[in-house]
Design a protein around this nucleic acid. Structure first.
Lengths: 154, 154
DNA sequence: CTGAATCCTTTATGATACTG
DNA sequence: CAGTATCATAAAGGATTCAG
């Protein structure tokens, strides 16, 4: 169940597993001596550079928006609104911001009577969507474990 | 430069490259037909489940805190405060929240005269730190590209 | 349907001061 | 050093209304 990790239907194998392997792999790389040497000042500097975009990408609603667009390919305004359970104002603001940052593009299909609008991810947006998958899967796994341990049947 | 991706010093090879390969790999998996079939309702349901924890993990300051602790292994209160340029109240709140969620643990070393406190990531915290790496690297790459294209020398 | 405009409420955050 | 307490402000969010 769920959009990410529903792998049995995919010929390509288990996404969850691939992510798991990957996390182990970079875990090993990061464990290797070198990381511990990083000074607090270096980390501070790095964060200072990353923070502006980080704040946009990882702010409220944004990961959700990116995720929906990533999975669905595209979505209309009200479709997103319903999916996220968000007010139009906030959604409108966020989409505007994301468009400004080059993460999302707005398209209009004038064919329809009430012209239909749809949002899609740009290349950057797709990259971010992809990059968010490990975090989402990790959270998902955590929730599964909790559900498990609370369920007396397991 | 920077903490993530400073691979030349690591024997284990290029982190950036590993992340890149991984993203391509899961990109392929996700491209394979199956994803597009996911209904908007399924995505909505999934998000509803993920959101509570997602909001904690991806809220302001939290990714930064996790990242610093991830890279450094541990940090004291004021050390974090300086690194993030955050007020004590907010930091205190966030650390309390993260402790409550089992993402961070607080340790006290009573040996020191003013007892020294240090924060570390729990297993879950480390998993999340790991999972955040692709997002951070993607943002970092993006910033590098921008810097590049703005610089006439390149 | 797709939003922009308004108004209003609730958090979140920041600065400052203070304690053990 | 490691916070807590207080106060003031800004930012975020929601509800409603309206227009193209």
């Amino acid at each position: 169940m769920g959009s990410i990790g529903r792998n049995s239907k995919c010929g390509q194998g288990n996404l969850d597993e691939v992510v798991q392997q990957f996390l182990e792999r970079i875990g090993e790389i990061l464990e290797s001596e070198c990381v511990r040497e990083v000074s607090i000042d270096e980390v501070t500097e790095e964060l200072k550079a990353l923070t502006p975009l980080l704040r946009v990408v990882l702010s409220k609603w944004v990961p959700e928006i990116i995720y929906v667009l990533f999975i669905r390919g595209e979505a209309g305004f009200n479709e997103l609104k319903r999916a996220l359970n968000i007010s139009s104002r906030v959604l409108s603001d966020k989409l505007g911001e994301l468009e400004g940052k080059g993460i999302v593009v707005r398209g209009i299909d004038a064919q329809h009577k009430p012209p239909r609008v749809h949002y899609r991810l740009t290349k950057l947006g797709k990259e971010l969507g992809l990059a968010l998958i490990p975090t989402l899967l990790t959270i998902k796994r955590k929730l599964r474990q909790e559900a498990h341990s609370l369920n007396p049947l397991h």
